[in-house]
Design a protein around this nucleic acid. Structure first.
Length: 277
DNA sequence: TTTATTGTTGAGTT
DNA sequence: AAACTCAACAATAA
């Protein structure tokens, strides 16, 4: 599942491979992948060149040289690949960008959840309102401790769904949320206003570090993630809790449990992560 | 055959 | 207003 580190890995791959490439034509075998009018999307994109690649939270932003931006969200299993001339479409190719140098940029999504929207650069939030509501990026520079304390203490929700809320902090998903809660020894059902400033400071550090390390490891491949080169990530080898239910906690040997918290599968250590109330 | 899974949005309820 | 639950989306695997 692409979370922020996986999306960032894709962004870097696309930037390395197709910056400066011109789009000569577009095929859309699965029209639902486009939000809005498909012929309009094709018309706005055809003839343009990929200038650079940005990311905000889990959204990719393809900057074109004609003042337009393609906003792309991979959702569950969306993947990009850059193929040499003459390559066949994949079984689940939703959209194919033909490039002037005969290569193709394919977007493949076995679950067909991912969506793409064309926007005017700088006005993306007009067509993708969520972009304007995203919380800060989980970085040292953007995620201030004062902000953390403020939003956690004025809210009265369970910490797990709170961390998944993209309007609070952008980019965390189920995997990294379970990891940082385990690292910080916080039970996923703990209420946000029950966390001390010291716990929030530690949680913040762990979030920033975890995301940084996952990006350095080119993301986590659990089900199907791969970068534009078709390579899997490395970070799944560094996961401490996600996917390890029934196995011993790496700190205390207690068997890790999997429970539902706000309808989301959640793995945690019942000994290290003590429920408070 | 049913259920769980995953990110996000939206509807509806407390 | 805030927070909760549930459904929907689509495909796959157990």
């Amino acid at each position: 599942m692409p979370e922020l580190p996986e999306v960032e890995t894709v962004r870097r791959g696309l930037a390395a491979l197709i910056t400066g490439a011109k789009i000569t034509d577009v095929d859309v075998p699965y029209p639902k992948v486009i939000n809005g009018d498909v012929p309009d999307f094709v018309a706005q994109v055809k003839g343009a060149t990929f200038k650079h690649f940005d990311r905000r939270g889990k959204y990719l932003l393809f900057r074109l040289d004609n003042g337009k931006t393609i906003v792309s969200h991979l959702r569950m299993e969306g993947q990009y690949s850059v193929e040499p001339a003459g390559a066949d479409w994949h079984k689940h190719s939703e959209i194919i960008f033909h490039l002037a140098d005969e290569r193709t940029l394919m977007y493949n999504d076995t679950r067909r959840f991912g969506r793409m929207t064309i926007a005017t650069t700088g006005e993306e939030a007009k067509v993708v309102p969520t972009l304007a509501k995203l919380g800060p990026e989980p970085t040292e520079a953007d995620l201030k401790l004062d902000y953390m304390v403020e939003i956690f203490h004025k809210s009265h929700r369970m910490v797990k769904p709170f961390l998944l809320d993209q309007t609070k902090i952008a980019g965390l998903g189920n995997i990294y949320t379970d990891e940082v809660l385990w690292q910080t020894k916080i039970h996923p059902k703990t209420l946000t206003d029950d966390l001390s400033e010291a716990q929030l400071a530690e949680l913040r550090e762990n979030i920033i570090e975890e995301i940084k390390k996952a990006i350095a490891g080119h993301g986590t491949t659990v089900h199907s993630f791969s970068n534009v080169f078709g390579q899997v990530g490395q970070f799944q080898n560094q996961l401490d809790v996600y996917g390890r239910a029934g196995k011993p906690c790496l700190r205390c040997e207690t068997t890790l449990e999997k429970i539902k918290v706000a309808q989301r599968g959640t793995t945690f250590c019942p000994h290290c992560q003590v429920e408070v109330r």
